[in-house]
Each structure stands twice: as C-alpha cells, then as structure tokens.
C-alpha cells in the first residue's frame, strides 16, 4: 500500500522553480533516502508532503487523502531541520518537548495527562535519552537534541517518520549511531521512513529506496538499481556512483 503519492508536483516561489515534475510513491515499510545537492528542492518537497507549502502544480496524497484535506497527523512523525542555536534560552525540558509530540493525538483543548508519561518515557528510551528528561533542551549537545526531536516524532507511535537532515550538525560517530537507531525503528518497529540527507553514500547503508532530486527527479527506485544504472553512471560519472554505491554494497555484503 502506498502511504505517500506525489504526482507531477511543481512548486515555484514567484518566478523561481524549487521542484518540478516530481512523481514518486512511498510504500508502507519503505526506507526512502531523499538526496540531492544544496537547493535541489528536498526540503521543499518534504514540506509540501506535510502541507506546509502550497503546490503550484500536481497533487500529493497521504494515505489516499489529498494532503490539503489530510487530518490524521498522528500517523506522521516529523523531525524538522533545526539549527543548533534556534532554541537558545528556551526554558523547556527534554520531557516537555517530547510530550508535545502527543498533541497530534488530542482534540482541543489538548491536555497531556499523567497516563501519557509512559509514552514519553518509552519514546525517550527507544532513542537512548531515557536519563535526559529533566535537562533543558538548550543545554543538550547537538546529537542529543536530534534524538529529542526523534523521540518527539515517535512518541505518538506514528506509522511514518519524515526527517529533514537530522544529522546535519552532529559529529560522524553520533551520526552513525543516529542512523542505526533509525534503522531499528524501520526494520524492527516497521515504521516507514523518509529521510533527507546530503550524504547519499551514508544513508545508502540503510535505505531500500533512493530518490535523487535536482529540482526534478533524477532517479527514484531501489538502491541496487541506482548502482547498476548506466543512466546514473552517465549522470554522475562512474567515480561518484562508485563512492555512493561502494558503501551500500559493502554493507549488503556484511549482512
């Protein structure tokens, strides 16, 4: 079953074209890596999927419902691109931030009950920040902050996670750990993952599908097809393709 269907989508900011003629589908259980250079429209496309940006052309549906009419936001967990100093001085604790992810499951006025505390603890434990609950968000290191946002996205037990460059500001070791956590969430937890990354080679370790965007969709399909595609060799050059796919293949062999 397709959870997300993007059909011939174009998004323009005035005369500037952010993305155009993009069509792709995300099925339940997929791990899709959305990659591409800076300014290629990755974040724009992800935000359009979340109904945060209007489409100039085309259509996007979530669970078979046009995203403009979609209301089951509790099925989706979102980890936005957050710069390190965005929440400097904000007095919220990690527990308060994670608990706010539960608001999509509530109706107005949204109350967070004592029973919800168990879900918050569970989400924090899943991403490995169980002991950070009382720490202030702006006093947590970058890698831990990303885990907080992942816990917030997962606290309502959504079917799908959409992540926008969650590892952009963290060191390689923490990044690797973060990807492993996400991989567990996908393979063990059965959640669909759509992840934006600059690092096609790295996410290639884990993703089963790759969408390469450069204002239009250059490639969308299985990672192994990407690696053997003569068109992609022509587009990227064999060296770049090898860099991206080499890591993927080695991880497959390791399994």
């Amino acid at each position: 079953m397709n959870i997300v269907e993007v059909k011939k989508v174009c998004i323009r900011y005035g005369a500037i074209e952010a993305v155009c003629s993009v069509s792709l589908e995300v099925a339940a259980g997929d791990y899709v890596a959305l990659v591409g250079p800076n300014g290629s429209g990755k974040t724009t496309l992800l935000k359009a999927m979340l109904n945060l940006l209007p489409l100039t052309e085309g259509a996007i549906s979530l669970y078979g419902t046009p995203c403009r009419q979609f209301r089951d936001w509790n099925k989706i967990g979102y980890v936005p691109q957050v710069s390190r100093n965005l929440h400097k001085g904000f007095p919220a604790t990690v527990k308060e931030i994670v608990a706010s992810g539960l608001l999509s499951t509530k109706s107005i006025p949204r109350r967070i009950s004592r029973q919800d505390a168990a879900a918050v603890e569970q989400a924090m434990e899943t991403v490995g920040i169980a002991d950070m609950g009382e720490r202030l968000i702006d006093q947590s290191p970058g890698g831990q902050q990303q885990r907080v946002y992942l816990a917030r996205a997962m606290v309502n037990n959504p079917d799908m996670l959409l992540l926008d460059e969650p590892t952009a500001a963290i060191d390689p070791a923490t990044r690797e750990q973060f990807y492993k956590t996400l991989c567990d969430v996908n393979r063990t937890g059965g959640k669909t993952v759509v992840l934006i990354s600059h690092d096609a080679g790295h996410v290639g370790h884990y993703a089963n599908k790759l969408a390469y965007l450069d204002k239009h969709l250059v490639f969308f399909g299985a990672f192994s097809d990407f690696c053997t595609s003569p068109e992609m060799t022509k587009y990227f050059g064999s060296h770049i393709q090898h860099l991206i796919c080499g890591q993927h293949c080695s991880s497959e062999q390791a399994k």
Partner: peptide
C-alpha cells in the same frame, strides 16, 4: 490555561505545531 499546550508548541516551533494539526 486551556490552550497552554498549543501555545507552548507554537512558541517552541510554529512549523512543527502545524504538523501536529494545531
């Protein structure tokens, strides 16, 4: 008091609050 959680979510991150359906 009634809209404390909504106000909190928006103050922390307005865009994320929209994704929560607020």
């Amino acid at each position: 008091c009634l809209f404390y959680n909504e106000l909190f979510a928006i103050a922390f991150e307005e865009e994320y609050a929209r994704v929560l359906g607020i």
